[in-house]
Design a protein around this nucleic acid. Structure first.
Lengths: 186, 186
DNA sequence: CGCACTATTTGACATAAGTCAAATAACAGC
DNA sequence: GCTGTTATTTGACTTATGTCAAATAGTGCG
């Protein structure tokens, strides 16, 4: 699913709006290991993943914590830093070669001004982020590590499995050792 | 802090906008024990708490889980149900007599249409919800039950303490017994 | 005031997951 | 294909928090 297809699922996209999006976005190809954003930098872009896999991570007491994975059809950015223009606390790393649609913040603002109906888009994307986070929050509170792992596999399939064990473990809020033991009992 | 004061902290409020808000909002007085919203109902109103204390809760395997408390200066609603028009999964209960500013969904939509600059307001309120939830999510993952309790007290002071033990415990994601033991060691 | 009901505390024990450490396994570069 | 490095697995032990049950304390109502 391309960026525009995805937008069309959220708000109606007129010919003009479609062209405006076309003119402000760039296609960006990145390779495994590249960093799209570093902690401390400003986050000027929203990315839509056309193909590939990314992750966002930060440090919590020396330990690297993976906060999210984004695969094709999903948006990726340090949401908070993108919106507030505060320095990013997250680093965004390319896990699998990606084709991305890059949406610069300033140009997105212009779209909001020129096409007020797109304000709704921003709100809905925020809501989606919220709902997703809420799901994880409830999961953390009411499910065991094994259940969370099984759910991750069910929802994200083998794609996420290509990520190293430690990254998946920290995403699930558990230690590597625990995840390794979960896997051992198939 | 009144509703309009609060809005003014987020977006500039013109004379006309102020009047428009005035015309769509109603002041509502509710008493301890009243239910503002029941699980299963549609959530048609956003409330701003001028004074008093509310909570939102839902059931998770027979157990009542308090999802949030809202005190003066905060908004209260089942955010998800309000936005999506899905049936509410939450019940909203009045913990302490409240004076509320009631904002009906349909009229809020009209404000969005008549004053497009208010779309930003919706987005920012959503973001605030998101950031708050993110804080709780991280807390659940990286702090002990005692730390979470201490933080709650620090942030919400004695107001929340008037809520029954079991409600606070479920909000913190722990059992009553554990919270009771935390309190016992002052 | 006293009864019945509900909320809180306390105790004894169970358990999921963490910690630390060592043993393997997998992998990248020469 | 070896070698050093990094990732994963396994083991032994600890710990925070949960569970179940019983004892108190608190509260509203007739």
């Amino acid at each position: 699913m391309t960026f525009l297809n995805h937008i069309q699922c959220i708000i109606p996209v007129s010919e003009q709006l479609s062209e405006a999006f076309y003119s402000i976005t760039k296609t960006k190809t990145v390779k495994r290991g590249d960093l799209l954003l570093r902690a401390g930098d400003y986050c000027n872009d929203l990315y839509f993943v056309e193909s590939g896999l990314l992750r966002g991570y930060y440090y919590q007491e020396e330990k690297e914590i993976t906060n999210w994975f984004a695969r094709e059809g999903e948006f990726a950015t340090n949401f908070y830093a993108f919106i507030t223009k505060a320095a990013s606390t997250e680093t965004i790393e390319v896990l699998e070669d990606c084709e991305l649609t890059q949406i610069p913040f300033a140009k997105l603002q212009k779209i909001y001004t020129d096409f007020p109906e797109t304000e709704r888009l921003g709100r809905i994307l925020t809501e989606n982020y919220y709902v997703k986070l809420e799901g994880r929050f409830l999961g953390l509170q009411f499910t065991t590590a094994k259940e969370r792992y099984d759910n991750l596999i069910k929802q994200n399939g083998p794609l996420v499995l290509r990520a190293p064990l430690g990254q998946i473990a920290s995403y699930l809020g558990i230690t590597q050792e625990t995840l390794s033991r979960i896997r051992a009992k198939h």
